[in-house]
Simulated scan of single mutants.
Amino acid sequence: MWQRIDVLRQFVRHESDTVSSLVLERSMNRVQLLGRVGQDPIMRQVDGKNPVTIFSLATNEMWRTGESETTQGGDISQKTTWHRISVFRPGLRDVTYQYVKRGARLYVEGKIDYGEYTDKNNVRRQATTIINWDSTFFLSL
C-alpha cells in the first residue's frame, strides 16, 4: 500500500493549502498513431513565424459484425479516421517535407492540440491537430 502512495506522490505534488502556494502536478498529453499519409506534406509560414509542415494521416479501425465473430463468419466493417499532423521542429519538419509522400506508412508521436482559426469567409472554426515530435517511416508494401 505504501508503494502506491509513493507512486502517486511522484505524479501529484501539493506544496501547501495557502493561496500563494503553487500546486504542481504532472499530466500527460501523448498521442501515438500508425497509419497511411493521405496527402503530400505542405510547408506553411504565417505572419513571419517559423514554418510548419502539415499533412494528413489515416488510421483504420476494423471489426466483425454478425452472429459469428470467428474468421469464417460475419461481415467486416471498417472506419477510417483522418488526423491533421503539424511538424514544427526544424530538423523533423524539413525531413518530413522532403521525404514523406502520399501513401507512405508512418508512425507518429506527438500531443493533441485544440485550437480555433478564422477561415477565408471570416467564420470561426475549431481545429484538432496532432503536434508531432517524432516520426518513424516504414517501407510501403
Rank of each mutant, 00 (worst) to 15 (best):
R30V: 01
E61G: 14
D47Y: 11
I112K: 15
P41Y: 00
F137H: 11
R105A: 05
K79T: 15
E61D: 15
L92R: 15
N60Q: 02
N121T: 00
Q78T: 14
L92G: 08
S86R: 05
S86E: 06
V95S: 15
E25Q: 11
S16W: 11
S77G: 03
V100N: 02
S20L: 09
L24F: 05
T65M: 03
I5N: 04
M28K: 08
Q45S: 12
L141Y: 09
D17W: 06
I76F: 02
N50W: 01
Q3S: 06
R36G: 10
V100H: 02
T129Q: 04
L33N: 10
M28W: 00
T80S: 11
M1H: 14
Y99P: 11
A104K: 09
S21F: 03
Q45V: 02
F88M: 09
D94R: 13
I54P: 00
A58V: 14
G74Y: 03
G110C: 03
E67L: 12
D113W: 11
T96A: 14
R125V: 09
D47P: 02
L106P: 12
I131C: 14
T128A: 12
T18K: 04
S20H: 08
E69R: 15
Y117A: 06
S27L: 03
V108K: 11
W82D: 06
V46Q: 14
F138C: 07
N132H: 10
T96S: 12
V46H: 02
G48V: 01
I42F: 01
V52G: 00
G38I: 12
G48A: 04
L139S: 10
F55A: 03
T71I: 12
I130E: 09
V123H: 07
G110P: 04
L22T: 14
T128N: 15
E61R: 11
T129K: 07
G110E: 02
I54V: 13
A58F: 15
R44A: 02
N122A: 14
S16T: 12
V100D: 04
V108C: 02
A104M: 04
D119F: 12
H83M: 11
R102W: 03
D75H: 05
R124C: 05
H83V: 13
G103M: 13
S86F: 01
Q78I: 06
V95W: 06
Q3K: 07
G74W: 10
M1K: 13
V12T: 05
D134F: 03
D119Y: 08
R30T: 01
D94Q: 13
D113V: 06
Y99M: 10
T118H: 06
M62N: 09
T81E: 12
R93G: 05
T129L: 14
V19R: 06
V52R: 08
I42L: 00
L24V: 15
V19Y: 01
D17F: 07
P90F: 10
Q10T: 00
R36D: 08
N50E: 14
T81Q: 10
V95E: 13
A127T: 10
W63R: 04
A104W: 06
A104V: 07
A58M: 02
R30F: 07
V46D: 05
V7H: 11
S56E: 05
S21P: 01
R64G: 07
V123C: 11
Y107V: 08
W2R: 11
